Computed example of a mutant assay.
Amino acid sequence: MSANSADGKGTLDVVLVKAGRTKIRYPAELLHDDGSRVTVRAPWAGDGVRDFGFVRFEPGDVFTEHYWRDRWYAVKEVRDGRGALKGWYCDVTRPAVLSGRELVVEDLDLDLWRSADGTAVLRLDEDEFAASGLAARDPSAAAAARAALDELERLAALDAFDTL
């Protein structure tokens, strides 16, 4: 079965690229591909526990990840091993590219977190984005990234991630 079939069967590798290098690569189950949005599910792919202070990602967590070929972000629903919703972690990225069995996404440093209960909506890594030099190298991409973060914050405030 092809990794880009719309019926959701198959696996692919999610490849997160940052500053021209592969940051992480992990296998994911393809759930859906409608030609614009690709949805995959994968267990926490990090090493051990990652404690951000506002959320902990740990072994057993499951991520349902939505990537778009025409949007500058990815939205990841995070659940613990028992299925309880922790929240949504969103990455500002260039539009995703599915090539064969690889879904390649370029991370642009900006992130957003929305807790499950909606009490915390946090814009993250704006200092890393400023330090990345993207605004000087590619002003139009930097503007698209900032607009994507604003859009994610608006969606979070509307509790609209479930409707994407």
Rank of each mutant, 00 (worst) to 15 (best):
M1C: 02
S2V: 09
N4Y: 10
A6L: 09
D7S: 09
G8C: 06
K9H: 12
L12F: 12
L12Q: 06
L16M: 13
L16E: 06
V17H: 15
K18C: 13
K18Y: 10
A19G: 13
A19K: 15
G20P: 10
R21H: 15
R21A: 14
R21P: 03
R21L: 12
I24T: 15
I24R: 15
L30R: 13
H32T: 03
D33G: 07
D33V: 04
G35A: 07
G35P: 05
S36D: 10
V38K: 13
V38D: 00
R41L: 00
A42G: 02
W44K: 02
G46F: 10
D47H: 10
D47A: 09
G48K: 03
V49G: 04
V49T: 13
D51I: 14
R56W: 13
R56S: 14
E58F: 11
P59N: 06
D61C: 09
V62F: 01
V62G: 01
F63Q: 11
F63I: 13
T64I: 04
H66L: 11
H66D: 09
Y67A: 07
W68G: 01
D70S: 00
D70M: 00
W72N: 02
W72K: 00
K76I: 13
E77W: 04
E77P: 03
V78A: 12
D80S: 01
G81K: 08
R82S: 11
L85W: 03
L85K: 02
Y89G: 14
D91G: 03
D91A: 05
T93C: 01
T93I: 03
V97A: 11
L98V: 07
S99D: 14
G100H: 00
R101S: 09
E102W: 04
L103V: 09
V104L: 05
V104W: 03
V104Y: 01
V104P: 00
D107H: 09
L108P: 02
L108Q: 09
D111K: 11
L112D: 08
L112V: 08
W113V: 07
R114N: 08
S115Q: 05
A116M: 06
A116Q: 02
D117W: 04
D117K: 07
G118L: 00
G118W: 01
A120G: 05
V121Q: 14
V121M: 06
L122G: 07
L122Y: 08
R123S: 14
R123M: 12
L124I: 08
D125L: 11
E126I: 11
E126L: 14
D127R: 11
E128N: 05
E128S: 06
F129S: 08
A130F: 02
A131S: 06
G133N: 10
L134K: 06
A135R: 06
A135V: 09
A136Q: 12
A136R: 11
R137P: 00
